[in-house]
Design a binder for these strands. Structure first.
Lengths: 172, 172
DNA sequence: GTCTTGGTTCAAAAAAAACTGAAGTATGGC
DNA sequence: GCCATACTTCAGTTTTTTTTGAACCAAGAC
């Protein structure tokens, strides 16, 4: 996104008082960059990266300590990741705390994430698109414009049909 | 994006002093929603939508007037769309002004857009990912973590190989 | 029941992105 | 060359998103 600002240039690294090893920091950087493309906040990407590179599940306090972020951010980040099926909690008998680890398939996680962003937009748009096409027709738009709008409509419909096949609904 | 804010909930419509017909406004809304997913600014989506629904190419001043946005935004928006191969200019003999219209294939436009966002991130990441994997191995990470990192690495490589096939390089 | 632990919530602060507009530049017409 | 038109640039401002942290709540231990 070169001109107005830039999704790529954005998220200029404000160094967080984190306590990560160099390769952990680099992994975080990678996930932050990728997440940026979809507009997922830095703090969430950092949490995921930490868990992704960790040999064992981590609990709330450890995550907060290693990343040096607020309780609020950790809580919201974990909620987001959990809701999108990107992390799982395991509980050990001795402790009341939940311990988190990444879901086995990153691919599935990404599809979940995309679905959750794209589908609602598509659904909201369906009736709109039809109205737009009708209005344009009624107003004497050129065949070329009508064809463009028609294609938009068909795409929307096909995308909605295909979506459920990608993965079982929300929780899966 | 439910918790921190939301890419979907964001871009709450601040009504612009625009002079669009109802169906044009609705089309703009559609493109703004879709663009939001990829983090493309509202003003850019509005310009594209206006051109997309227009029966003839429009010039700079007309775009500015219809959308009620600043010269700066129109200029930057057109640059972005042009640079990503999403619009084309036609010139008529009598006038010095450029007149803009959408590129024939929206699909191609979208692929361009994606490429321009994803590719640089992937390229930047390649050396990083290898270092991360090595560092983790050297540090005695579990086989599970090493496997995760390896998969990341392979994906990155495959994505980079595939990318050039999607479409001829930058300008095309 | 009451206390402690393990979080969640949300209003306010901070940071980042997007937009504006006035000043600047480039190109065509003369 | 000189002027006017047609943009482009970018510092400053506005808007939106993200983060913080203190107050709150819930569940298990006692």
């Amino acid at each position: 996104m070169t001109p107005p600002s830039s999704r790529s240039a954005r998220r200029r690294r404000r160094p967080r008082p984190a306590d990560l090893k160099p390769h952990e920091a680099e992994l975080a950087q990678f996930f932050v960059r990728m997440a940026g493309i979809l507009g997922v906040p830095r703090s969430i990407a950092e949490i995921y990266a930490l868990l992704y590179g960790s040999s064992q599940p981590l609990d709330f306090d450890r995550i907060q300590a290693r990343l040096g972020m607020s309780k609020g951010s950790v809580s919201q980040g974990l909620r987001f990741l959990r809701d999108h099926g990107m992390i799982l909690s395991v509980r050990v008998a001795e402790s009341r705390r939940e311990r988190w680890q990444p879901t086995p398939s990153l691919a599935t996680s990404l599809v979940n994430l995309l679905r959750s962003q794209v589908l609602p937009a598509l659904e909201q748009s369906t009736p709109s698109l039809r109205r737009i096409q009708d209005a344009a027709a009624a107003e004497g738009a050129t065949p070329e414009v009508l064809e463009r709008l028609g294609r938009l409509n068909r795409w929307n419909g096909r995308a909605l049909e295909l979506a459920p096949l990608l993965l079982p609904p929300p929780e899966a």
